[in-house]
């Protein structure tokens, strides 16, 4: 049984067919890429998978559980973790608090614990702190744990987002352009982190990317999305040489 199964996912905004018949099957440990030009509907796919948008047709199954009718936080708690294309940070919270916040669904001390404290809350908060610190160490941010996120450089904020997404204990991790706006050095760091996450946690990862080189190097299989439709799917090498992909990226060669 596959980990994630997406069948004929489509969404229409008014007259605009943003995504049409998108299909994807992922097994545990898979690492996939989703490429495409701006406005192709890549983030829309993510938003449908995480419950932010409701698809007009099709379904998303996580371990045979349909996400339909569930709130984003419920879907996230079931195991679809994500990062955002444009950083979504809580600007008055520290790095550690960000990562701890993502453990929200595992809190069992309830309101009583929140109001009056107690041993259980202390235990759980300590557990969460430890887990968060481990994840921050993974993304090499543990020394900045008590900084406000706004004080971090951009690349570090991106890494923090990955740690935060990991803290939700996802079965599948959706990374929305993790390298957007990064310099080459930061790029290498991110690549290393993704490899580490993939290698160590055997986590399934779905990656949206602009930088073809980056995707080609990381992903086992790649889909190319243009105007909401998958025009090509296959191994990096196939995609690289796929005429339609080249056309979408470089424009049509003009024949005289």
């Amino acid at each position: 049984m596959p980990l994630l199964e997406i069948k004929d996912l489509s969404i229409r905004f008014g007259g605009l067919q943003a995504v049409k018949n998108y299909n994807l099957t992922m097994n545990p440990g898979d690492i996939r890429g989703l490429i495409g030009p701006n406005g192709a509907g890549k983030t829309t796919v993510f938003n449908m998978m995480t419950g932010i948008l409701t698809p007009t047709e099709g379904q998303v199954l996580l371990n045979n559980w349909s996400i339909e009718g569930f709130q984003p936080y419920q879907i996230a708690a079931r195991g679809i973790g994500r990062t955002f294309q444009n950083l979504c940070l809580w600007r008055h919270m520290t790095v550690l608090e960000h990562v701890k916040m993502a453990c929200y669904s595992k809190i069992t001390y309830g309101l009583f614990g929140a109001f009056f404290g107690g041993a259980r809350r202390k235990r759980e908060e300590t557990q969460m702190t430890n887990k968060a610190m481990d994840l921050l160490a993974l993304v090499k941010l543990d020394q900045f744990a008590d900084q406000l996120v706004g004080n971090l450089p951009y690349g570090a904020q991106r890494r923090m987002e990955i740690a935060r997404a990991l803290a939700t204990d996802p079965k599948i991790l959706l990374l929305d352009e993790p390298t957007a706006g990064m310099n080459p050095e930061e790029l290498d760091q991110i690549m290393e982190i993704i490899r580490l996450v993939h290698g160590e946690y055997k986590m399934a990862i779905l990656l949206i990317e602009h930088r073809l080189k980056f995707v080609m190097e990381l992903c086992e299989r790649i889909q190319a999305l243009v105007f909401g439709e998958v025009i090509a799917e296959g191994e990096p090498e196939e995609i690289r040489n796929h005429p339609q992909v080249i056309e979408a990226y470089l424009g049509k060669e003009i024949e005289y």
Binding site: T50, I52, Q71, P72, Y73, A76, A77, G81, R82, F84, C88, L89, W90, R91, H92, M93, E97, K100, M101, A102, C103, Y104, S105, I107, Y109, G110, L111, G113, A114, E125, M128, R164, A165, A167, T168
Partner: peptide
């Protein structure tokens, strides 16, 4: 952390939602 969720909701609600 349960209470800090208030801050998370205030600063970015959709991010809070995506983080369970």
């Amino acid at each position: 952390t349960l209470g800090k969720a208030l801050n998370a909701v205030r600063d970015d609600e959709s991010a809070a939602d995506a983080m369970t």
